[in-house]
Design a protein around this nucleic acid. Structure first.
Length: 359
DNA sequence: AGGATTTGACCCTT
DNA sequence: AAGGGTCAAATCCT
């Protein structure tokens, strides 16, 4: 058994255990006089998330005969009808059939990849023309005018797609309503090692200043900072649909800069300037839920691994000196649910040190 | 020179 | 057939 399968197994157990625990808690709530509908809703959400994540894992385990890293090395060109050198692919019928089957499989996999959307607000004052970096290294591979959209949509794939077989992609769409807001749709999770070194090698020159200031700060967290975080961190999941798309916002106070180190389960957030937004860090913890579910479920936090079934990243602290969608309080979507660390039932066994918790 | 971006063409899905 | 997603040659940038 490889580490990925082992991780999935443990995660599955964890999810199901969480589901049971939350169900028990909900039962207690039903018999409790001080039970509020919010608490019940939260528990229901957590239970749902646990089961949804479990199903997702099972779905992946069942459908993924080959884990993504085992995809053909040339899979990047699979969708092309012409080989790299321009010559037609083999006309061998058997081979063509296999290619066709592979195409179908890949298509299915892509469809079933976890997808989520973040909205990132950039500051005009700071001169950002586009969405800020998210800690990963992306390579733009296309741009498209979208019907009804004022701005074109940009397509990015992981820079290390071929080197490390990382199939994460993202789409960046500037909001029609608010040009300073970018809607970033992530598909698939990273299974590459880039999170570590991309932190030292910003890929978007125009964002380097921002990154130096906000995204990759590695300062020690303080209690005050943690309290600030607790007081101000908000997660919103709204407009969730059957395509497992979620939108989340994190609101931080100005001049906030903190990092939670090992004791705080590798959870680090940095925010320095009110205009600085750390965006795009794949919030895998946003679980597929119903439109009414606006609560953040820790138990569902780390399982949206998609193509990142093999969790082979370094588990060093530096990997997690990233930021996820640290937005200012101004957002274009309504804040429906509030979240603070106090609300979280942190499971001691919860794999916060799994890099895909934030990827 | 090598890597990243641009952009028109092609492919797939609906 | 239309629209979205991806490819890959051309071009740009460092």
């Amino acid at each position: 058994m490889d580490c990925a399968s082992n991780w999935e197994y443990k995660t599955l157990i964890n999810e199901l255990t969480q589901g049971i625990e939350h169900t028990k808690q909900l039962r207690e709530h039903f018999h409790s006089a001080d039970s509020t509908s919010e608490n019940q809703e939260l528990l229901l959400q957590r239970i749902l998330s646990s089961y949804e994540q479990s199903l997702l894992i099972l779905k992946w385990s069942g459908s993924t005969v080959q884990s993504p890293p085992a995809l053909p090395p040339s899979s990047g060109a699979i969708e092309s009808s012409v080989s790299v050198d321009g010559s037609p692919k083999s006309d061998d019928k058997k081979r063509s059939f296999q290619d066709h089957q592979e195409l179908i499989d890949i298509s299915k996999k892509r469809k079933s990849q976890p997808t989520w959307t973040e909205q990132v607000k950039v500051s005009a004052e700071s001169g950002f023309e586009g969405p800020i970096d998210d800690g990963y290294s992306w390579r733009k591979y296309g741009q498209k005018d979208i019907l009804g959209a004022k701005y074109p949509r940009s397509y990015y794939r992981c820079t290390y797609r071929h080197m490390q077989n990382c199939w994460a992609t993202k789409q960046v769409q500037r909001s029609d309503d608010d040009p300073t807001v970018f809607e970033i749709t992530y598909r698939g999770s990273h299974n590459c090692h880039q999170a570590t070194y991309s932190a030292q090698q910003p890929t978007w020159p125009e964002k380097q200043e921002f990154k130096k200031q906000a995204v990759y700060q590695t300062g020690q967290y303080s209690n005050q900072a943690l309290m600030n975080l607790r007081a101000n961190l908000r997660v919103n999941t709204n407009d969730l649909d059957k395509n497992e798309t979620a939108t989340c916002h994190f609101s931080f106070p100005p001049t906030f800069s903190s990092g939670l180190t090992d004791d705080s389960r590798h959870f680090q957030i940095s925010h320095v300037d009110d205009n600085l937004i750390g965006g795009g860090y794949s919030p895998s913890f946003v679980s597929p839920t119903t439109p009414e579910s606006n609560y953040f479920s820790v138990s569902s936090s780390c399982q949206m691994n998609g193509y990142g079934m093999v969790h082979n990243l370094h588990h060093s602290e530096s990997d997690l000196t990233d930021i996820f969608s640290a937005n200012t309080s101004t957002t274009s979507s309504p804040i429906v649910g509030d979240f603070s660390l106090d609300q979280l039932d942190l499971d001691p066994n919860f794999p916060f040190d799994n890099p895909n918790f934030f990827s």
